[in-house]
Design a protein around this nucleic acid. Structure first.
Lengths: 155, 155
DNA sequence: AGTGAAAAGGCTTTAAC
DNA sequence: GTTAAAGCCTTTTCACT
């Protein structure tokens, strides 16, 4: 799907505030509200906009620590990778999981209440998934950047 | 701040659809719209809700590849860590950056158009930051899970 | 494609329980 | 804490450029 500069500008506004009104969006991008509405609906339909979500402070929910876990699997067959991914998706604490090239197979980011919760989570959830050869954890000391796509650099 | 089961239920609805109407939210959590509105405003004010954003398909913007880069710094002084973090934040392609314990110092996730764009990005942006001792990249082959906090497990 | 106005619906506030 | 109702603002449609 082709996105012009107005589409990108609209996405940029929505990325900063997904609850912005059409009037606000229109003023920010230099259009009236109707074309903004049409463009948003078009991008929603085309799958450019996958959804709208809320950015929640993890600490407010009691998740004081973020841990990144690297996992190597015993087998690299399609079925093993698929089954492991499915099992990972079922663990609520797993926020992100990437299948990667290179030494490790999966990069996983998890949210835990504290170090004891992390230990419990590994033992009761992650290590119960069969097929893990090796894993390695790193605690996140500081988070530097939020996940926002560089829209201005997509033209 | 104390969050009861209604607050958590509201957050869960908003996480799935930040543009849900108060009527929808109320129906989903078993309240009328007024208390939902009050609770949302309270959570916004308390910093539980940090904002609302849109989930954009990276491929639609031309970002076909995700790369995870591990970077070790030459010095571990506060100033080095701070300066490096500041430089990272200025690179639009950097979606996430975590300062971590363990062997590597920073875990960085970047969005790139293709492998050539990745190479350009490393050379022109990342490697221009002084103080890097070593770095290692892994291409993401598949993304398994989106970043949503496990709200149901925070009670 | 875009604008502007009008109708339909939802948000926000007030008031009452 | 809750619900109900009133006014206002927003979304959505439509006629027109």
């Amino acid at each position: 799907m082709n996105l012009d500069k107005f589409d990108l500008a609209i996405l940029q506004v929505l990325q900063r505030n997904a609850r912005a009104s059409l009037a606000e969006i229109g003023a920010a991008v230099g259009l009236s509200s109707t074309p903004c509405w049409n463009r948003i609906k078009r991008m929603e339909g085309a799958g450019v906009i996958r959804g709208y979500t809320v950015d929640i402070d993890p600490a407010s929910l009691g998740f004081m620590d973020t841990v990144i876990v690297h996992v190597t699997l015993e087998s690299h067959s399609d079925e093993t990778l698929y089954e492991f991914g499915k099992a990972l998706s079922a663990i609520p604490e797993v926020l992100e999981a990437f299948l990667v090239s290179g030494d490790y197979d999966y990069y996983i980011r998890i949210a835990v209440r504290d170090t004891r919760d992390y230990e419990r989570m590994l033992r009761e959830q992650l290590y119960r998934i069969p097929g893990i050869r090796h894993s390695k954890s790193c605690f996140v000391l500081r988070r530097l950047k939020e996940t926002l796509l560089p829209i201005a650099h997509s033209g």
